[in-house]
Design a protein around this nucleic acid. Structure first.
Lengths: 339, 339
DNA sequence: GTGAAAGCGCTAACAT
DNA sequence: ATGTTAGCGCTTTCAC
């Protein structure tokens, strides 16, 4: 079926141009000490033969791969996609290329193992460094640079990009409190992530600040998926005194809440106020790009940090904290910009 | 800054396990002729040292990389994202991993060159084959398998996944004609792609079939981007006798039309009917996943085809044509399912 | 069942 | 300005 066309190597080029492989290599790598006549001859042979350098071989020798990896829990959810866009933009501006890896379902067992494996594989083989999104593992026993987006809560030993999760949660809560709500439910995100912890902290402290005692039964636990948004909402509505408002740790979960509310015939915002921490899925529809851009920016910044590290440029801050901005929407078209 | 932790190689493992590298390699590759005692010792050393195989080195020797490439014009538009999801799903079900490359802006000069380069680079170095979306180049002088999604119009020499572009365009046109429209504008996609040609063909023939002569001034040319949707719509509305309906070759461009319509104060669908060939961006908002799934499925199918080829499994069809299904939406919530 | 040795395609000294 | 040579880390004969 497939033609057995032997792949053309640097040897073939050298032979046809009647020079040594090292001369070809020099041309390939833009070294200056090659006679321009020779150079042209080699270039034309390369063109003739359709030669392209074997990256594997090159990277094996030179330890410079011009490739960065992006490791994500899943490729197919809005957050990931926005991050990718940002990463892609930074990549496009650089001399690097991008390798995207997925670690699979968050809840799949053995995920930490996979992640570890991917990271080592990527770093010690193929890429110069990796950006890792919402990791499960805290330690990676490798040498190559890592930058994390939304890292673990436990103080990680690598640079990271965060949102201002605490302040954002405070903003969200203050908005709900400002509407007059006193029983506000909370659905948490993946407990091991910094983002989730700080959002919860914001929830608690906003209540305290308002003089409202925290009712632990109003806190449901989730993992940033719509499914746990649904189960969390069900749990909260089953309470003897259900909340009049819900603050979901992200919008995936907020959508779960909407869904349950609809099932129960609750109108939003008349019967129930809902705020999700971020807002991705629906924003594009409304021409509201701020939050998309926010997430995307995290990818962009993280990638730039990574590239700096790879190139040996010192980082000003090990941690970059992006300023959130609360955007509330209550229906299809209405957008209330709070900040 | 970074610890100078030398990367652990198969040599280190061999030394520590007091066997030869070849024995370690055998274990690594699941060969059977290793004493189970030796095997266990090696495995535990591997675990100890945190060894992971260097993919570059392996692929250089074995020519088996377990990696497929995905090459797209851009990573950041809805079509690409849906394709990626599908590809990712197929990848997740396979023993392969995924490498994503972007060729950059469609209109950027030198794109064909980049694409060529990426393809060769990927295939002869790093991956076992590539899926390429909406290519610009027709020929790739390489040996490795290629599957294309939305290929060039010129009969390509590699397998491809298409939509039923002609039939879909007929459906769209029949819908508009059914609404009573007689002056229907058309904005074409990237002229070199099969999809664009067949959609145009559907436009023409639907008119003919309805006994309406084709007015060439009603045909604006575009390239599947929102920008050309806008310029195309402007061009059509500037006509002495502007169209009462517009069929845009994809939804990116339909969005451009919406935008212009809004600028001009035209109400949709009262003053103007608009149909885009596909529907991605907005569908998620409405819980309408059919078209997303459609695109995603193209990625899925293409990847499965590619994997078959890589594994030497014969393909039943070189061309897989996915059945479109027209979905019309006129406003935020209203959805009219036509088929 | 295990080891020695060759070599994948390339780059980087070191020669000339 | 160009060639020679020695590996990078691995798999794969081919010995034993």
């Amino acid at each position: 079926m497939r033609k057995k066309k032997r792949t053309v190597t640097i040897q073939d080029v050298a032979r046809k141009a009647r020079v040594s492989v090292s001369t070809v290599s020099r041309v390939l790598n833009g070294k200056v000490d090659v006679a321009s006549e020779t150079q042209e001859r080699i270039l034309s042979v390369i063109d003739d033969l359709g030669y392209t350098t074997n990256l594997a071989a090159r990277s094996m020798r030179s330890h410079k791969k011009n490739l960065v990896g992006l490791i994500m829990p899943d490729i197919a959810y809005p957050f990931a996609i926005e991050v990718m866009k940002g990463v892609n933009r930074a990549i496009a501006e650089s001399e690097f290329d991008l390798l995207v890896y997925t670690t699979g379902d968050v809840r799949k067992s053995g995920r930490a193992f996979h992640e570890q494996k991917y990271v080592s594989l990527l770093t010690n083989s193929i890429s110069d460094g990796v950006v890792i999104v919402a990791p499960v593992a805290g330690e990676f026993n490798i040498d190559a640079p890592i930058v994390s987006i939304d890292p673990l809560a436990s103080n990680p030993n690598y640079p990271a990009v965060h949102a201002t999760n605490y302040q954002g949660a405070m903003d969200a809560m203050e908005y709900l409190l400002g509407l007059g709500h006193r029983r506000i439910g909370f659905i948490s995100g993946r407990a091991e992530l910094e983002s989730s912890n700080r959002r919860l902290k914001g929830y608690r402290e906003a209540l305290e600040k308002a003089g409202i005692p925290v009712d632990e039964s109003l806190i449901a636990s989730g993992d940033y998926t719509t499914e746990t948004g649904i189960s969390g909402a069900r749990q909260l509505f089953a309470l003897e005194k259900p909340p009049t408002a819900i603050f979901a740790s992200n919008d995936q979960m907020a959508m779960g809440v909407y869904q349950v509310a609809e099932e129960l015939g609750l109108r939003i915002p008349e019967d129930l106020s809902v705020v999700g921490f971020d807002n991705i899925t629906e924003s594009k529809y409304m021409g509201l790009t701020t939050v998309d851009q926010f997430i995307s920016e995290m990818g962009y910044v993280a990638t730039q940090m990574l590239i700096k590290i790879i190139n040996g440029v010192p980082l000003e801050d090990q941690t970059y904290r992006m300023q959130t901005r609360l955007v509330i929407r209550n229906s299809c078209r209405e957008v209330v910009d709070v900040n």
